[in-house]
Amino acid sequence: MDVFMKGLSKAKEGVVAAAEKTKQGVAEAAGKTKEGVLYVGSKTKEGVVHGVATVAEKTKEQVTNVGGAVVTGVTAVAQKTVEGAGSIAAATGFVKKDQLGKNEEGAPQEGILEDMPVDPDNEAYEMPSEEGYQDYEPEA
């Protein structure tokens, strides 16, 4: 019985440690998101679009440190934060509304985080759909 109880105690310690790591990862992701939003706020009209992409990228980098179902929630929060940063930029006159959601080359930025393969159960990952990809044929 002692062996059984000791095993359960060790398992509990492992769960607590994993929860603490997840909590730490979420806190880091939130900190990076805040950094990115402050970065966007300090940019001029020309830099705002690039700044919004930076927020998304920093958040995406930190999301990889967070495991399990938390990833889905962090990704949703990050996307809403990026959308909010863009709205703030438009409201303050840093950028025109028609410039939001495009990178410096004018290509749409939507789907940055949505296409990231995420499995809350950590069982399997699927690649994003290939609808947006084109076949590449090298020139002879």
Rank of each mutant, 00 (worst) to 15 (best):
M1Y: 01
D2W: 04
V3R: 13
V3F: 08
V3S: 05
V3L: 07
F4I: 11
K6H: 04
G7F: 06
G7L: 15
L8T: 00
L8H: 00
L8K: 00
S9K: 11
S9P: 00
K10Q: 02
K10W: 09
A11N: 00
K12A: 04
E13G: 04
E13S: 03
G14D: 02
G14Y: 15
V16E: 02
A19I: 08
E20T: 09
K21N: 03
K23T: 03
Q24C: 04
G25K: 13
G25C: 12
V26F: 07
E28F: 13
A30D: 00
G31I: 07
G31F: 15
K32G: 00
T33K: 00
T33W: 14
T33Y: 04
K34P: 00
K34C: 07
E35Y: 08
E35N: 11
E35W: 09
G36P: 00
V37Y: 11
V37L: 14
L38D: 01
Y39C: 05
V40E: 00
V40Y: 15
S42G: 06
E46C: 07
G47E: 03
V49D: 01
V49R: 08
V49S: 11
H50W: 09
H50G: 04
H50N: 08
G51M: 14
T54G: 07
V55P: 00
A56D: 01
A56T: 13
E57T: 05
E57G: 06
T59E: 00
K60Y: 11
E61M: 12
E61I: 06
Q62F: 12
V63A: 03
T64L: 12
T64I: 13
V66M: 11
G67N: 05
A69I: 05
V70T: 02
V71T: 05
G73M: 12
V74D: 03
T75M: 11
A76D: 03
A76H: 10
A78V: 11
A78Y: 15
Q79C: 06
Q79I: 09
K80E: 02
T81N: 02
V82A: 12
V82P: 02
E83D: 08
G84F: 13
A85N: 02
A85Y: 06
G86I: 08
S87I: 13
S87M: 07
A89D: 02
A89S: 05
A90E: 03
A90M: 14
A90I: 02
A91D: 03
T92V: 13
T92P: 05
G93H: 06
F94A: 14
F94Q: 07
K96Y: 09
K97P: 11
D98K: 14
D98V: 03
D98L: 15
Q99K: 04
L100A: 12
L100R: 05
G101N: 03
K102H: 05
N103H: 11
E104Y: 08
P108A: 06
E110T: 13
L113W: 15
E114K: 13
E114P: 06
M116D: 15
V118P: 13
V118Q: 02
D119W: 03
P120H: 11
N122G: 03
N122C: 04
E123S: 08
Y125P: 08
E126A: 15
P128R: 07
P128S: 06
P128V: 06
P128E: 07
S129K: 06
E130V: 09
E131Q: 07
G132D: 10
G132M: 12
G132K: 06
Y133K: 06
Q134L: 11
Q134I: 12
Q134F: 09
Q134K: 12
D135M: 11
D135Q: 10
Y136F: 15
E137I: 03
P138W: 10
E139I: 11
A140P: 13
